[in-house]
Write a protein that binds this DNA or RNA. Structure first.
Length: 151
DNA sequence: GGCGCCGTCTTCT
DNA sequence: AGAAGACGGCGCC
């Protein structure tokens, strides 16, 4: 399915009614246009996406099995537990998994997250409040952190 | 504060 | 094997 926003359309791949993939248009710079999302979905998926962009917590829709290495799965599982408005650092996640020094590897795993928004990798910052990066471009990350009042 | 180097761990060539 | 990455820490200007 596809969700229209002023920043481009968000594509969500569904498999068996479960979320299998999510793609945002890449933005290297923040658009002049203010962000707004076309509301209209009464299905759980668009409801969730709308909630994310308004900084609210919503129940995560069913996710298809995410393909990735064991390490990546651990990282994603850990990230999925971060509630809206809360920030964790790459180092904290690494420690939570059991390898406190694997922060860099954690960053790699985030970048390969197949379902941004559903696995809130935007709530992960560097240890010194650095933003790090974002698969679809930092403007998205900034936007999300802002609506969640977690900058 | 900003820049660069080295250590660390996983993944891709 | 070798290189690279959404890191972290330390030393230096």
């Amino acid at each position: 399915m596809e969700i229209e926003t002023t920043w481009g359309s968000i594509v969500v791949e569904l498999l068996d009614g479960k979320v299998a993939g999510c793609t945002l248009p890449f933005l290297s710079t923040q658009p002049d246009q203010p962000f707004s999302i076309a509301n209209g979905g009464d299905d759980p998926v668009s409801a969730f996406v709308a909630a994310v962009f308004s900084g609210k917590n919503a129940r995560l829709p069913a996710l298809a099995e995410l393909k990735g290495t064991g390490f990546q799965q651990q990282v994603w599982r850990e990230i999925a537990k971060i509630p809206s408005g809360q920030i964790k650092t790459y180092g904290e996640l690494a420690a939570a998994i059991g390898s406190p020094k694997a922060a860099r590897a954690v960053g790699s795993a985030c970048g390969r997250n197949p379902v941004p928004l559903f696995i809130p990798c935007h709530r992960v910052k560097g240890a010194n409040a650095q933003l790090g990066g974002f698969s679809a471009g930092l403007p998205w990350k900034r936007l999300l952190l802002e609506v969640e009042d977690a900058t």
